[in-house]
């Protein structure tokens, strides 16, 4: 039981799932995915130094609707510094795969092992693309720096994405889910902001009852 004043600025996806004791809905999945890729894009220079796990505790939803993906917490021993190829950090596609798994598990939360949730085909396809990302093409692992810096230019956002190679591709697919793609930043931020606010409201309510 915390004090009355200091509300947290962020909640982990794990905390959100536990509090509601139910999976996230599809709109929240699209939103978390978009927002997380937006923050990962903004921080591309700071690639995680070790392979990410795929735990909901690593994904944080912030009060302002931002979503971040952190490395494992301090309670987990750090994995070996380099993977089998000797790389010292995750590739963009490995991070995307982890994110896809985290989001799928959040949609699957509470279901029995022999049960499967029926997802809408576009969302299932998004997660399928994300979680197969490392198998489809590893050729662009490290070469992103000079390749797509012009992404704020929206001209190419109308093309269809048939495979995922980057955070930007994930964001394009999420934007294509909306009636108006240009609404994506505001819409998805609002969905995540609401997810945080509603969870905090529930948290406060439950704390009062206790």
């Amino acid at each position: 039981g915390g004090g009355s004043g200091g509300q947290p600025e962020a909640l982990s996806l794990e905390e959100i799932l536990r509090l509601y004791n139910q999976p996230i809905n599809e709109e929240q999945a699209w939103a978390v995915c978009y927002q997380c890729c937006a923050s990962l894009r903004a921080r591309r220079g700071e690639t995680p130094t070790a392979r990410l796990g795929a735990a909901a505790a690593q994904l944080r939803v912030w009060r302002d609707g931002a979503v971040t993906l952190e490395q494992d917490g301090p309670d987990r021993p750090p994995p070996p510094a380099a993977d089998k190829s000797g790389r010292l950090h995750c590739t963009e596609m490995e991070v995307i795969e982890s994110l896809g798994i985290i989001i799928y598990k959040a949609l699957d939360y509470g279901l029995k092992e022999n049960e499967e949730r029926e997802l809408s085909p576009p969302l299932e396809q998004l997660i399928d693309y994300m979680t197969n990302a490392t198998e489809t093409d590893g050729s662009r692992d490290e070469g992103y720096d000079a390749l797509d810096e012009g992404v704020e230019d929206d001209n190419d956002d109308k093309e269809e994405v048939e495979a995922i190679h980057s955070y930007k591709d994930v964001m394009k697919l999420c934007a294509a889910h909306l009636p108006t793609r240009s609404e994506a930043p505001n819409h998805y931020q609002a969905v995540c902001r609401a997810l945080f606010a509603e969870t905090m409201e529930l948290y406060t309510f439950l704390a009062k009852i206790k």
Binding site: I101, Y104, E115, E118, I127, T131
Partner: peptide, 23 residues
């Protein structure tokens, strides 16, 4: 505790859940 907002089906061996659980 309203009704579920999604449909559940038996897990399929070639479905996305099976694929992801193998990761």
């Amino acid at each position: 505790k309203g009704k579920s907002l999604y449909n559940i089906r038996p897990k399929h061996d070639s479905g996305i859940k099976a694929k992801i659980s193998m990761k």
